[in-house]
Design a protein around this nucleic acid. Structure first.
Lengths: 252, 252
DNA sequence: GCAATAGTGTCTGTAAGACAGTATATT
DNA sequence: AATATACTGTCTTACAGACACTATTGC
């Protein structure tokens, strides 16, 4: 009656979560010219994993992604973007490694073939205190250029997320979740350079970003020491939201 | 012991297919300036549905989408593009309506909350003899502008697919699956106009399409009656594949 | 010669991209 | 005065977009 245990497992868990589907969040964190990703390491495991989890039967996939991201970062109202689904028998095994990787047996429902819906999210990483849970031994930020060994296909998921983010940035505004309410041109300039991983001519960047109308100048300046003080800018709420919905062209 | 039936159902089907995940294919068909979508109508139902289905435990989501599309169109090697996943409790019910819509009881596993992975595919619709199966009463092409009432959120999925296709066409080549091996400029011009739903200046279109290098002129011409005979073009295999992988810019 | 469609070149205006020197604040 | 950073304008070039006439064929 080996299957019997499986039946009960399926049903017991099955009431709360969907089976064979999970969420993987690529949580990007930006601060001071550094782009990082939030990863977690399950107990008794030396590989790292994305902030993933399961979908409750009462929530949409977007809600699930939001909840899972919020459980790890402590933040609400994060910007979330679905970018791709991953699913093949060979990636088998669960995506939230909390159970499987902690050495659970083959009968466990989480060891099944999972299709994972990939989302990415953006946040200012100094605002975030990463927090794991009972099964997570560590949860921390990793620089995008120095990632540790990762479980399953999570490396590939990250690459796809970064590619999607870099495409996204040319068509939609970015920055609201990554900069303080008021920010300088050099700050947003550094943000774009960091995300795209390449340098952008500052004169042209300023010209084109202003032309989109998503930011506007204030009369205030930031005092940053022995230099000319940069003006502060804010996002233009109306234009920003509009560009988020309608898209825009930004050839930087 | 009402739940008992459910257990057996879960297990019986569970061995073959993943639970709570499905595929929905938006099969676009093009022919002679018409863009259509392949829909199926399950037995005893007056609403139509996308060509959807379930994922076998032995196949990737891409393989599943390819198999399902091929089951409906009879064609292999179709171009498939994953564009979005859909999932919320309110869309509840299965996506392949073959079982649920045919009036199965609530105990049926297919009535669960399903996350559906949306793919779209392109084909020349004159090549296709739509075929249903035991549960499908009808399967046919519908013009994109005159779609029938549809089950669940399938209307929304189609809109998302069309949006994704129209974005795609500006960054990747299109046409290999939709035109004959040799085709004229007016033919490919009509294809682009039909997909985008707007007219494109023929001089600029030709100029820019040729500039991408994805098509090349042959010395043959097509004899189409009392008019000047247009030259035939073919896709440049190398450039086409390269553009599919690397992307391209086509500002038409 | 008439009808119908194929095919093609030029001009203009805009904006992308390259480029560097001046202004300002602090010590 | 020296230093470090903010800030800005012009020129060139490429190409997007607008535009219309000629060529060819069959009837």
């Amino acid at each position: 009656m080996e299957n019997r245990n499986r039946f009960f497992d399926v049903v017991a868990k099955g009431h709360l979560y969907l089976q064979n589907v999970s969420i993987d969040n690529v949580v990007f964190g930006y601060h001071n010219k550094e782009l990082k990703i939030l990863l977690q390491r399950p107990q008794n495991n030396n590989k790292w994993a994305l902030a993933g989890g399961y979908i409750k039967r009462t929530e949409s996939i977007e809600d699930a992604a939001r909840r899972i991201a919020s459980e790890r970062t402590g933040l609400n109202g994060l910007f979330l973007k679905q970018f791709k689904a991953f699913g093949s028998p060979s990636r088998s095994g669960n995506i939230d490694p909390s159970l499987e990787l902690a050495g659970k047996t083959k009968e466990n429902w989480t060891l099944d073939y999972f299709v994972s819906i990939g989302f990415y999210t953006l946040t200012e990483f100094e605002r975030v205190k990463p927090s794991g849970d009972f099964y997570i031994e560590e949860c921390k930020w990793w620089d995008i250029h120095r990632l540790p060994a990762m479980v399953f296909d999570h490396q590939e998921i990250i690459e796809a997320a970064l590619k999607a983010l870099r495409l996204h940035i040319y068509h939609y505004p970015i920055g609201y979740e990554l900069l303080s309410e008021k920010f300088t041109i050099p700050e947003i300039h550094a943000l774009y350079e960091t995300i795209l991983g390449k340098s952008l001519d500052s004169r042209n960047f300023t010209k084109k970003l202003l032309a989109t109308g998503i930011i506007k100048k204030t009369s205030e300046r930031r005092n940053i020491g022995p230099h000319r003080s940069p003006y502060l800018y804010v996002f233009d709420t109306v234009n920003y939201k509009n560009a988020l919905n309608e898209g825009m062209a930004l050839f930087i």
